[in-house]
Write a protein that binds this DNA or RNA. Sequence first.
DNA 1: TATATTATTACTTAATTAAGCAACTATTTA
DNA 2: TAAATAGTTGCTTAATTAAGTAATAATATA
Lengths: 121, 121
Amino acid sequence: MNIGKKIKSIREAKGMTAKQVISAVDMGAPMYSRIENGVNEPSLSTLEKIGKALGVKLSDFFDTDDKLADVNSYDASIMEKIKLVEELNDDEKKIVFSLVDALVGKKKLKDALSGVLQDVK
Amino acid sequence: MNIGKKIKSIREAKGMTAKQVISAVDMGAPMYSRIENGVNEPSLSTLEKIGKALGVKLSDFFDTDDKLADVNSYDASIMEKIKLVEELNDDEKKIVFSLVDALVGKKKLKDALSGVLQDVK
DNA sequence: TATATTATTACTTAATTAAGCAACTATTTA
DNA sequence: TAAATAGTTGCTTAATTAAGTAATAATATA
């Protein structure tokens, strides 16, 4: 499997659009399209930026055997959401976190988020 | 550690001279020198050839412990939240995501989460 | 020391990636 | 259906990697 297909498969597995990656990487859409379709080969620095946008390690583009269960395995869509949540003001955050708390049924959530919510509580 | 130093350290660990690698890779000595010294960045195909000459996998050039700044920049409390959210079932996720969507007012959220929510919708 | 081998640096030229713009296609949304 | 969004392709131009030659520096060996 070439690097372009690998990038695309990771991107789709993360539920991200090409546009999201492009804006995160700050590169031209035409170039990114050519990379995913194998027309052009990305440079290492470009691949590094793409990996950053996708939330994977550089080595994840190359090997297929060893995995995982670490921070980098979290779905990029979750990271997208976190970024959005962080844009909320404190009151809004409180609402969201309380709801999650209720759904998950884990009081420790508030403690875990104490750093973020310290002045809200 | 940059890629050049990594190549050099692997080469020296294998007890090979630069000349040996160069002849095996069939590339110019000046270019190889610049790569090892970080002046130039090798292309993926060149790095692949170097890896072949050194007898290592491409992923061996990239340490697995180099976590991504993008992910690591989030503090532990955020990671706690991610884990909790991921414990939700799809319906619950949908509620949380919809709420965040409403609060943030960004339609792109749904797109970002389409991969996660595809079978919920 | 003197010599040979290895490695680096300074050029030129060729090939490839990348940016930027425009146009086109395809898919989704209103 | 019409409009908006996502993705692709065709260009041009700029930046970078790579090949090649030659000269210099550094290191090892006789």
